[in-house]
Each structure stands twice: as structure tokens, then as C-alpha cells.
């Protein structure tokens, strides 16, 4: 009963997200259909088009019943290569960091186990570290400030993991579960 009510309340949100996806794709297709902007897009933004192509292909495969992890991994690797192959080394590192950040974010929102949420957050923090160290290598190689900030991020990550695990332990002691969907005591 409770589950159905939960679903009903989110139908509006679903339409919103679906509409957002639709609008994004429509805007892209609209730019493509205009002959004045098409050349500009094909010359400068062909990688982005291929990226969306890969995303669409992934959605299609998931729709016909492929295993989600495999599709995500293949799509991520493929789009990463497509997007970064013609770029500089710095952009490659930054894109990898963005991609890992996106994967971490996906895991953080998607997973129901609190421990896995913590792991995803660690992954996101590490993606940020790649970013900082790439900047310190390519932009500021003498005074390696990026590495300094990465050290501070390591510290914060350690503190976060410790407190987070302690909170998970405390919650487990009260609720006997680490399922995120069941932590709903503050809901009315």
C-alpha cells in the first residue's frame, strides 16, 4: 500500500524528467535539422552527437533486455574514447574525472545499501582528486598546489568515511538494516 502511494506521488516528477530528456534531444535534433547550423555542429560538435548516439543505443539495448552493468560499462568506455580521442592530454584527464564523478553519482543515487552509498562518495572524491592533480601537472607544475588540495581532500575523505561508517553502524543498531529505502523515520 505504502509503495503504491509513493509511486503515485512521483508520477509528476517522472513526467518532468522524461520531458527534460525529450527536450534535450529535440533541441539537439533541431540544431541538426537547420542547414545553417548543421555544418557548424558537424564540424565542431560531432563528438557530442556520437555521445548522444551511444547513450541512445544504450537505452535501446536496455529496453530490449540487455544487462544494465554491461551496457553502462560499454557506453561509458565508448563515449569516453569518442569524446577524448581528438583532445589534449589535460582534457582527457579532466573528462575521465568527470566520467568517474558521474558514475559515482549514479551509484550514490541508485544504490539502496548505505555502505555502497559511502563507497560511491569515495569514488566521487577520488574523481575530484584526479582533476586537481591533472591541473597541478599541466598548469602549475612548479608549485604543485593541486597536489596540496588533493592532500586535504584525502583528509576530508578519511574523516567522512569514518563518521559515515559510524553513522551507518548506529543506524543499523537501531533499525537492524542498512537499506536506504527503510530509513524513513523522519517521513510523516
Amino acid at each position: 500500500m505504502q509503495d503504491q502511494g509513493f509511486m503515485k506521488s512521483t508520477i509528476g516528477k517522472d513526467f518532468l524528467y522524461g520531458g527534460l530528456v525529450f527536450l534535450t534531444i529535440c533541441a539537439f535534433l533541431g540544431f541538426l535539422s537547420n542547414p545553417a547550423t548543421r555544418d557548424v555542429i558537424i564540424n565542431n560538435y560531432y563528438d557530442i552527437g556520437m555521445f548522444f548516439g551511444i547513450v541512445g543505443l544504450g537505452l535501446f539495448f536496455i529496453g530490449i533486455g540487455a544487462r544494465t552493468p554491461g551496457v553502462i560499462a560499454g557506453g561509458a568506455i565508448g563515449s569516453f574514447i569518442v569524446l577524448t580521442a581528438p583532445q589534449d592530454a589535460l582534457v582527457r584527464y579532466l573528462s575521465l574525472s568527470a566520467l568517474l564523478f558521474g558514475i559515482g553519482m549514479y551509484g550514490m543515487i541508485k544504490s539502496r545499501n548505505a555502505v555502497r552509498v559511502l563507497m560511491s562518495i569515495e569514488l566521487m572524491l577520488n574523481a575530484v582528486n584526479i582533476n586537481l592533480i591533472a591541473f597541478s601537472r599541466f598548469v602549475d607544475p612548479v608549485q604543485v598546489k593541486g597536489q596540496l588540495f588533493a592532500i586535504f581532500i584525502l583528509t576530508v575523505a578519511a574523516a567522512e568515511a569514518a563518521v559515515g561508517l559510524a553513522i551507518v553502524l548506529a543506524v543499523y543498531r537501531n533499525m537492524s538494516t542498512v537499506d536506504m529505502n527503510k530509513f524513513n523515520l523522519l517521513k510523516w
Binding site: T68, L96, S120, L123
Partner: peptide, 10 residues
């Protein structure tokens, strides 16, 4: 890194 991190979340 990418394939392993997909492995972590899935």
C-alpha cells in the same frame, strides 16, 4: 578504472 567503477556500483 571505468569498468571497475561500473563494477563497484553494479
Amino acid at each position: 578504472a571505468i569498468s571497475l567503477s561500473v563494477g563497484v556500483i553494479s
